[in-house]
Structure formats: C-alpha cells, structure tokens
C-alpha cells in the first residue's frame, strides 16, 4: 500500500533521511514520531511525492517514485489527502467554500459540490459552521475544515503533518478522535507528531520513531538495504 524501501534523502548535501524503510498497510493508523528535524515531514512529503528520494524507492498504491511522471501527480494526490499543522485554509473563503475549492479544482461537477460539502462538513462535525470564515473558527475547528478538505477527493490515505501541533490538548483529542473515526471507515492514516501525551494515550496505535533521519523504532520493522 505505502512502502519506503531503503530511502535516502539529501537537501543540498545535507542528509535528511538515511536508509529508511517503512511499510504501512491498508486501513492502518500510524504515529510517525521523533524530535524536530528527525525527518517526519520529509517522509510525508515523499509519500505525497512533493519531493523524490535521492536513492531508494517510495511506492504509494500503483505509483512508484522511480517511474512517476509529472502528469501522474494529480491522481496520486487525490488518492493521498494531506493535512498541515497550520491548516492552510484560504482566509477569504468560508469553511464551506474552502472544502468546495478542493472539489471544484479536482473536477467535481458543480451540481454535486454543494451536497458533498455538506456531507464532508457533517462528517467532521462542522455542518453548523459552514458559513464561517477561518478567522471566526477555533484552531480545532479550522483543522477539522482542513481535514474535510483533504477528504474531498476520497483518498485511501490521510497524511497529517503535526495536525495537533497548534492545538490545545482538548482540541488535539477532538481532532485525533476524528482521525480514529475516519480510520474506522478503512482509510489509512499516517500522522507525524511529537505529542508524547497523545501517543501515550493511544497505545493501540503503531508508532514509528525517527531520529536523525533513521528509523529507531518500528514494531513491524524489516531490514532493507
């Protein structure tokens, strides 16, 4: 489903990932953890193919970093939703319009956009705030809108980069509960976080720990060279 095999990644001569191998199965939820600079965001960016490995291979469903072409990226990104720490909502659009934006720019027929936006906002518990602008929403609510937007293209995996990093503990718990309910529907989730409390509260979730660009802990680790 999602596989990194012997991945190395360098930026301008600085090695960020060193021989990383990770395998995430369909429907699995994973915490990707480690200190700042450990390479968590780079792993997510590699899976989303915002960048390519210096060596090794990243496989996401039928896409391989070794063979992917520019024209394949839209399809891959529709299949892999992305949520940012800072939400990245468009400030001049309402919650509903932010979600509609993702649907419109990926070719959803106009007639289907409205009902789909309502359904998505309902799914993240924000149906009542559809007409609110991001500045009128709390951090937790903004992150829920961002999740609704990421779900708009019906991805099979949700990649979340420190999604609770800007939230208080209560809002964090709310967002993570939302992730659990999404995961329950069969969607894989890879969540980068260094929130130790959140990880401790959910011992049932698989944890992959990175340090200095190397996997230092993974209960399902398999050595690849």
């Amino acid at each position: 489903m999602i596989q990194l095999r012997g991945v190395h990644k360098s930026y301008g001569g600085v090695q960020v990932l060193n021989n990383v191998s990770i395998h995430v199965r369909k429907g699995e939820i994973v915490f990707l953890t480690g200190p700042s600079g450990a390479g968590k965001t780079t792993v997510l960016r590699l899976v989303h193919m915002q960048t390519l490995p210096t060596s090794g291979e990243v496989r996401v469903s039928k896409f391989s970093s070794k063979r992917i072409k520019r024209k394949d990226l839209p399809e891959l990104r529709r299949r892999a939703g992305f949520v940012f720490q800072d939400f990245r909502l468009l400030e001049n659009l309402t919650a509903a319009e932010n979600v509609a934006f993702a649907l419109e720019c990926t070719g959803t027929p106009r007639a289907k956009v409205g009902p789909r936006v309502q359904k998505l906002l309902g799914q993240v518990g924000l149906a009542a705030r559809a007409r609110s602008y991001p500045r009128e929403l709390s951090g937790g609510e903004q992150q829920r809108v961002a999740v609704a937007r990421a779900l708009a293209t019906e991805p099979f995996v949700l990649l979340a980069d420190e999604p609770t990093g800007n939230l208080d503990s209560r809002a964090s718990a709310g967002v993570f509960d939302l992730f659990r309910s999404i995961n329950a529907s069969g969607m894989s989730i890879i969540m980068a976080t260094h929130d130790a409390d959140l990880i401790r509260r959910h011992p049932e979730v698989r944890v992959i720990e990175l340090e200095h660009g190397t996997v230092v802990f993974d209960p399902f680790a398999k050595t690849d060279s």
């Binding site: 992305f82 990245r88 993702a102 990926t106």
Partner: peptide
C-alpha cells in the same frame, strides 16, 4: 497559497 492548495489536493496543471 491557493495554487499550493490546488496542487496539494490534486488539481491538474491545465486547470491551474
């Protein structure tokens, strides 16, 4: 910002 979001959610180059 909008273009980055479009690319993130999978809009095609032609659409952008």
């Amino acid at each position: 910002e909008g273009i980055a979001i479009m690319k993130t959610v999978g809009a095609t180059e032609a659409y952008i």
